[in-house]
Design a protein around this nucleic acid. Structure first.
Lengths: 344, 344
DNA sequence: TAGAACTATGTTAGCGCTAACATGACAGCG
DNA sequence: CGCTGTCATGTTAGCGCTAACATAGTTCTA
């Protein structure tokens, strides 16, 4: 199947958009000078720079970032993978990341696994195909193929939300410890019959870690630490259901430690509607410190997680690494704060 | 400055990642066949396809999407611009977009203007540089330079949230009409002294459109339609403040029509805490139909906006256009539903 | 049964940009 | 004054992939 060289001219494909070459011609410089005028202006004389910028303006030139990325083998994309957009927690982390990265000219590529580990692998493959400068992912647990891909990758990897054995960089908090903290608080307030209620803790395994801490404290006091998982991550509705189920399965219960504020607030509002006294008849605690919980009556007892800070710090750490500077810490504990409300 | 051709070989730049060419060699085909095996498998014999896929697997090949985009002048990126991530409304729209686009192999590029029109221009420039396949943006109002850029663009532009004079495609609802609807409802419930309370309506101008509708109805009945803007878009806190200010500035007020559910719920929870009867002493209405409002007691009267549907429909319409199929409608009214709660 | 139509595959030439190297001009220096 | 260093700019050669066109073999059609 040997072909003869084609001597006729082919039809061109390009669009009507002006290219850097045209800008350079208009400015009377070579294209590399035009490139430098835009990307590293300090390496070009003031005169040349001015003429290039003027030509850019006049022609309405918009740099083709795809071509630039191919040529430089780097894209100024930051891949961000979260398990859910429905959860305000991740939104705030994303916001913190976005602010910090965009200020440095990086663009976030957002991926949402919807708590499906398979999706993570797919997303990472796609993102690698975009020559991302770094990857930020929520959590430390990854599927086998995922780990293989990640370990073969040369760019910074930042795992956020929880602290632990990370692949590379790590910013988060100790969820087990947060669980312990709230369990201790509930004991201090005199509650003994305490149920931990989560939703989809197989997926939201950080809720499981908090339960582990919770149980450790209760069992340390010789108390039972029953756990109720009402299936699939959910919101206020799920909280209401959680309250009902907990009361049904555990009569004589004094307090419920919910896996998060959505559940806890849902339960609290439901208790109100049912006429149950909180914390008189049942104490309720949450986790996250969402604004919502601080506006209900009684105010929700919960643990404040510094979500925006996680995003900002993670971004700063990644940027420092990308700039080639030494990383202050590979691991960063952002801590948490117990918010003592009126619900416990 | 004439240079002699360089005859020495230069140092190569490429990374260690296998390329399509290597996959093709391993499979014993040309690179274009390997390309086709991956992108248009139906145009390749089964035998060749199998060998290519096997080579991909063996070498751990990850397609370089940057190179592919440059060569094909299209990136399968969808630019999405929203004014805020703090607002659950936009998150749900994004989710609807994401689900639908990702199923077709498109990747969303998310931009957040934080209600700054300048940022929109910057974001659009960047996104155009990525050869996006389409742009989805919240709202119909754009700065002058922005319009110029958009009008010169050849790809589909989808404006979502509100209905009106759009640049290209449009999916949303009539906010003025929603304002009218709620105003009528409040009149039906016998309220006469009604204040409209918003936060940052210069930025969140759709809240302003709803107020226009509200005023139209009230003034049509010979009633005053005072409006109170408490500055900067805000959440539950702002709602509490809005309630206080409204009571202060408008003694004798019977009802407050809030610009959104966050404000309304914040006010409602604050009223509870203050011991104000809702709707006995003060009626409260919102807009959006967020779950939160449906879980408080009394249940919030609000207008349900089909946010997820907006996202899904917008994506479907764009995909139809990208597939070259005729567009069913350039404009799509998703409507809204009055949720009569107990707060009015 | 000639030739049109279709199928599978290949060759070539870029896409628009930047890394690497090259060159000439000039300043500083012993 | 030649040498070295720095600066501004230029030439060249790709980055890895796919569109466009080319070519054989096969099947269908008149």
């Amino acid at each position: 199947m040997s072909n003869q060289p084609n001597t006729r001219t082919r039809r061109r494909r390009g669009s009507a958009q002006p290219t850097l070459k045209e800008v350079a011609e208009a400015a009377g410089v070579s294209s590399i000078t035009a490139s430098r005028a835009l990307n590293t202006p300090e390496r070009v004389s003031e005169a040349a720079r001015a003429r290039v910028l003027q030509a850019v303006e006049r022609l309405g030139y918009v740099p083709n970032l795809v071509a630039g990325s191919l040529a430089s083998a780097s894209s100024r994309f930051i891949a961000v993978i979260v398990p859910s957009l429905a959860n305000a927690v991740f939104i705030e982390v994303i916001h913190g990341l976005q602010e910090t990265f965009e200020a440095q000219g990086y663009q976030i590529l957002l991926g949402n696994t919807d708590y499906d580990p398979q999706r993570e692998y797919q997303l990472i493959r796609t993102f690698f195909g975009w020559s991302c400068s770094a990857l930020v992912t929520a959590g430390l647990r990854h599927s086998g193929p995922c780990r293989t891909l990640l370990e073969g990758w040369e760019q910074p990897i930042m795992e956020v939300m929880e602290l632990g054995q990370a692949l590379d960089l790590n910013v988060g908090l100790d969820h087990r410890d947060a669980g312990r903290c709230m369990a201790r608080h509930l004991l201090e307030r005199g509650h003994r019959a305490i149920v931990y209620v989560g939703a989809g803790m197989a997926d939201d395994y950080r809720a499981g870690l908090r339960y582990d801490g919770h149980r450790e404290v209760l069992e340390g006091q010789g108390l039972a630490a029953p756990c109720l998982d009402i299936g699939r991550p959910g919101g206020l509705d799920a909280g209401a259901r959680g309250l009902e189920l907990a009361l049904e399965h555990h009569p004589g219960i004094a307090a419920i430690h919910f896996a998060n504020d959505d559940l806890a607030t849902g339960a609290l509002l439901h208790a109100q509607r049912r006429g149950l006294q909180v914390p008189g008849q049942i104490a309720i605690a949450g986790f996250n410190g969402l604004p919502l919980g601080q506006h209900v009556t009684p105010r929700l007892t919960t643990i404040q997680s510094p979500r925006h800070t996680i995003g900002r710090l993670a971004a700063e750490e990644v940027l420092r690494r990308l700039a080639g500077k030494a990383v202050r810490r590979r691991q960063h504990d952002v801590g948490f704060t117990l918010l003592e409300g009126e619900s416990t």
